[in-house]
């Protein structure tokens, strides 16, 4: 609604410097409200994790995180995260190249489909693989006949993790490469560079921080995924349990202290992710502001 001129005129003339910000007490109140909200929803839960983890002392804590089932969960989590990062990085680079360097019909549909796993419920993400590869699934009988195990086994866990982290790197690279345009790559081509050379010497140095940023997000989500993995894993202790599933099992066995001890490992990971994300984010923003300067240092 546009303000009417006579309505505006009724306000007294104000000191412009004061009129461009809020009165001091309003600023204080807003800061207090924001900080209380952050403290209540973020800081207190963080403190709770470590307080509960150390409930029964350091000895109990270290036993909980060093027992064989916990260690095998760490291993499985690392394996699933590794595959997610590698596969989705390759996909992120390929899809961003195809989408930003060329024009073709159906581009916006393709981008929407890439985004789809982002809004699909993790439980549905697990369900689709059970319906495809499970015993009752479409390929179930064939897999059984050939003695191949996907559901309740490592491949299923990797697939579900890859699915939930599917758009993370791609969605970072597409807008970045769109912004940077193709001039530098085209110049390199005119100067005689081949496709591989263009990618490694021109494109990759330009997008390295964006790629790393996407990898950090992808890795964090992969290591922490719970719902999707829960559906496909079968919860076989020591075999198909990732760290978040191990937390759930300990919790359901009423071993709360051990559950929080293992949870504290994942919380460390989350805090590390936030630090890495902030540091890489600074580099990333800088490289976005001066793509030309970044490219020069990359080629030189």
């Amino acid at each position: 609604m546009a303000p009417r001129v006579d309505e505006v005129k009724t306000y007294p003339v104000l000191d412009p410097a004061r009129a461009l910000t809020e009165p001091r007490w309003v600023r204080w109140v807003l800061i207090a409200v924001a900080l209380s909200f952050i403290a209540l929803f973020l800081l207190v839960p963080l403190a709770q994790v470590f307080a509960s983890a150390l409930d029964k002392g350091m000895g109990y804590y270290f036993n909980a995180v060093r027992e064989p089932a916990a260690l095998s969960a760490v291993k499985l989590t690392l394996v699933a995260a590794f595959f997610s990062v590698v596969f989705n990085s390759a996909f992120g680079l390929a899809s961003a190249w195809a989408i930003t360097k060329f024009r073709f019909p159906g581009k916006s549909l393709l981008i929407t489909l890439i985004d789809l796993p982002f809004t699909v419920s993790p439980v549905v993400s697990g369900l689709i693989y059970v319906l495809l590869f499970g015993l009752q699934g479409l390929l179930g009988p064939w897999l059984k006949a050939h003695n191949l195990h996907i559901i309740f086994a490592l491949p299923g866990i990797v697939l579900a993790t890859v699915f939930v982290t599917f758009p993370f790197i791609s969605r970072e690279l597409i807008p970045l490469m769109q912004e940077q345009g193709s001039e530098e790559e085209e110049a390199a081509m005119v100067l005689g560079a081949g496709g591989r050379q263009i990618f490694w010497k021109v494109t990759l140095p330009n997008i390295q921080w964006g790629l790393l940023y996407g990898v950090i997000l992808c890795n964090a989500r992969a290591m922490g995924e719970f719902g999707a993995v829960s559906v496909v894993s079968g919860h076989i202790r020591g075999l198909t349990n990732t760290l978040p599933l191990h937390v759930e099992i300990l919790y359901n066995e009423y071993d709360f202290t051990a559950a929080f001890a293992v949870a504290s490992l994942l919380t460390f990971l989350a805090v590390l992710t936030l630090i890495a994300k902030t540091l890489v984010g600074l580099k990333y923003e800088k490289s976005r502001q001066t793509p030309a300067a970044q490219a020069e240092s990359g080629i030189a």
Binding site: P45, V49, G224, E248, F256, A270
Partner: peptide
């Protein structure tokens, strides 16, 4: 960044 299961039990 925090895994949802950790958020849940916390």
């Amino acid at each position: 960044a925090l895994p949802t299961a950790v958020a849940g039990i916390t």
